[in-house]
Simulated scan of single mutants.
Amino acid sequence: MSVTNASTSAGTGKGTGSGPTGADGTKGPIVNAAPTVFINLYCTIVVRSHVPVVLDLKNPNYTKWLSFFRTMCGKFGLLHHIDDSALANLDDPNWVQADYSVKRWILGSDNKESCAIFLSNQFHSLVQGKLSVSDYCQCIKALADSLRDVGHAVRDSQLTLNLLRGLNPRYSNTADDIANVTPFPTFAQARSMLALKELRLATLYSTL
């Protein structure tokens, strides 16, 4: 849902024809009306009015907090922005605006420790599902970057382990191979090995 910014609603589109005639009879430049700007309602909400629970490390209440947070996202049609299996649509300005709004709710509504609880849960429960290897790795890296920003950096070995944990079962053999490599592969190395396996599987299925 969106509302139109009042400061721009006076214009109805681009101007047509010539501009105003000056005192000397010459035509002035054509002045186009400003484009209409849409402001999504969820960009201006106060999170605490929808999520009255503050995450607390000393009094674990993540489940209760998440219930309120999911309800708020559902109210504004934004559940797919906290669904790890949903694909990002970075080419859609509306999707990007919504995604930044949800991130602001998570990172800006409570203290860093509260944010870390939520992000850590998201990180350790992430699974590949139907995501490509590239998109799955991007999701893992984005969550790790967010954890770093709130003071809980993720080691590279943890990235690799979490990558293997949530893989689609069709990569189970490759995951075993990666886990048995010495020294333990970096996240970038594991991603490359899985991308190669994905390419081979795609080639195999295309010939069947």
Rank of each mutant, 00 (worst) to 15 (best):
H80K: 14
T71S: 14
I117M: 09
R104S: 13
C115S: 13
A23D: 13
P93S: 07
Q122V: 07
V51G: 00
Q128V: 04
W95E: 05
Y42I: 02
D99A: 13
I30H: 09
V127D: 06
K58L: 13
V31R: 15
P35H: 08
F38K: 04
H124A: 09
D92P: 04
L126S: 04
Y62A: 03
D91W: 06
W95R: 07
F123L: 03
Q122E: 14
P20L: 04
V47Y: 03
V102S: 01
Y42N: 02
W65E: 00
H80Y: 03
V53S: 04
A86C: 08
V127Y: 05
P29Y: 11
D110Q: 13
A116L: 03
H50W: 07
V46G: 09
C43L: 12
Q128K: 03
Q122R: 15
M72K: 05
S109D: 09
T21C: 09
L107K: 06
L57H: 12
V127K: 10
N121Q: 14
F69G: 00
S18F: 11
P60A: 04
V96G: 05
M72T: 08
D84M: 09
I45M: 05
A34L: 12
D99G: 01
S109V: 01
K112A: 13
A98H: 02
L87E: 14
V47G: 03
D56L: 05
N121W: 08
K112D: 15
Y100T: 10
D110T: 09
M72L: 14
K112M: 10
G15W: 06
T44Q: 10
L41Q: 13
L131M: 07
F68Y: 14
S101Q: 06
Y62M: 05
V51A: 01
P60Q: 04
N59D: 10
V54H: 12
A34I: 08
A116F: 00
P35N: 08
S120I: 05
L119K: 02
K103L: 06
Q122T: 08
S67H: 14
S49H: 11
K103G: 03
T16L: 12
A34G: 05
N111C: 08
D24I: 06
P29H: 12
L90A: 15
V51S: 02
S49D: 14
